[in-house]
């Protein structure tokens, strides 16, 4: 294809991505270096019957004028990155120099908002990804053995948790685990504890969110693995059987190696999607016990009084760095393959 043809075909798509993905990344990077203006203070002398007093007041007009003149705020350098709400460098230094052992260090660091969000995001990502792959694989093996006439309806029902909007799916489950809802009431009955509530403790909230994440993502893993099972080399399977491999050995030594490339793909997509976990925290109203990086950004931007653009932008940049780190093995591998092909 000629360069000119290529350019004109790719132009609309590339322009859209440049304007609304690449530029916003630059915009986020710039915003993260600025912080909101302080309010403009003026001294007013108010004289009453008991003499004159000088008061310091906020000048709303001047503050608004300053905001319009410099909407970005004032330059703050890397200050936002290092403050308590983000990397909290000085707080961490203090914790490390003044603590009662490792458990205390962990507990104190967990109380810093950024590290709290980061730890939940990482735990969620690295638990939900393998769990949904394992369940998805088991379901794919199950669907593969049932008679053909059941396959359609079974796949239909299995797809629902993945296709339904994450916020709606989490709301539906949230209403059911409510102590007046069906799952919540049944759990209270099973554990014979009328006070049991999945929302009360941080641990149970984390478990709920991770179970939700697995429920939501399993269909994706299932569908891809199921498609992979359809392309299994039949003769390899048969020769394994002739050699006396039982069903488990066949799964372990024939099916699983065949599905490894697919598993890499599923794992990559799941890592990317789970790392942005956000809607379930809103749906389950879990922000008191579990926050994620995406949720922190949303919370900064959604402030009722002031939108903290600088703070949101700094968290965004840190999140993007996280994404790049997560993707780096894939990027390096693709780059090597590309170099090899080029030579």
């Amino acid at each position: 294809m000629r360069h000119r043809d290529f350019a004109s075909f790719i132009f609309p798509s590339a322009l859209a991505m440049l304007l609304f993905i690449a530029l916003p990344i630059v915009s986020v990077a710039v915003q993260s270096l600025f912080v909101e203006h302080d309010q403009v203070l003026i001294s007013v002398e108010s004289c009453g019957p008991f003499g004159c007093q000088t008061e310091t007041k906020v000048d709303p007009a001047a503050t608004a004028a300053l905001k319009t003149a410099q909407p970005l705020g004032k330059f703050n350098g890397l200050g936002t990155y290092l403050n308590r709400a983000h990397l909290a460098v000085s707080e961490i230094g203090e914790i490390l120099s003044n603590n009662d052992g490792v458990a205390d260090i962990v507990a104190q660091i967990y109380n810093l908002p950024f590290y709290k969000a980061l730890s939940f995001t990482l735990v969620y990502t690295f638990l939900v990804t393998p769990l949904s792959m394992a369940v998805g694989f088991a379901v794919a093996l199950g669907v593969n053995t049932i008679p053909r006439m059941f396959k359609g309806p079974v796949i239909f029902l299995s797809l629902l948790p993945y296709i339904v909007t994450p916020l709606l799916g989490s709301l539906i489950l949230f209403w059911m685990i409510n102590s007046d809802g069906v799952i919540g009431a049944s759990l209270q009955w099973i554990f014979a504890d009328p006070e049991l509530s999945l929302k009360a403790s941080p641990v149970l909230t984390w478990v709920t969110l991770i179970v939700y994440g697995t429920w939501h993502m399993t269909p994706f893993a299932f569908v891809v693995f199921y498609a992979g099972l359809q392309t299994l080399p039949k003769d390899t399977l048969e020769s394994a059987m002739i050699d006396g491999a039982n069903r488990w050995e066949r799964i372990r030594y024939v099916v699983m190696p065949h599905l490894t490339p697919l598993a890499t793909f599923v794992g990559l997509v799941l890592l990317m999607d789970n790392f942005r976990v956000f809607e379930p925290i809103i749906g389950f109203s879990a922000e008191a016990n579990a926050t994620s990086l995406s949720w922190s950004i949303y919370n900064d931007l959604n402030g009722q009084v002031d939108q903290l653009f600088g703070s949101a932008a700094a968290t965004s940049i840190l999140t993007m760095i996280g994404v790049i780190i997560l993707l780096s093995p894939v990027l390096v591998r693709t780059w090597r393959e590309f170099k090899r092909k080029a030579h």
């Binding site: 915003q31 956000f278 932008a313």
Partner: peptide, 9 residues
């Protein structure tokens, strides 16, 4: 990229 990071931009 998480969509919300772009929204911040």
């Amino acid at each position: 990229m998480p969509h919300i990071t772009l929204v911040a931009g």
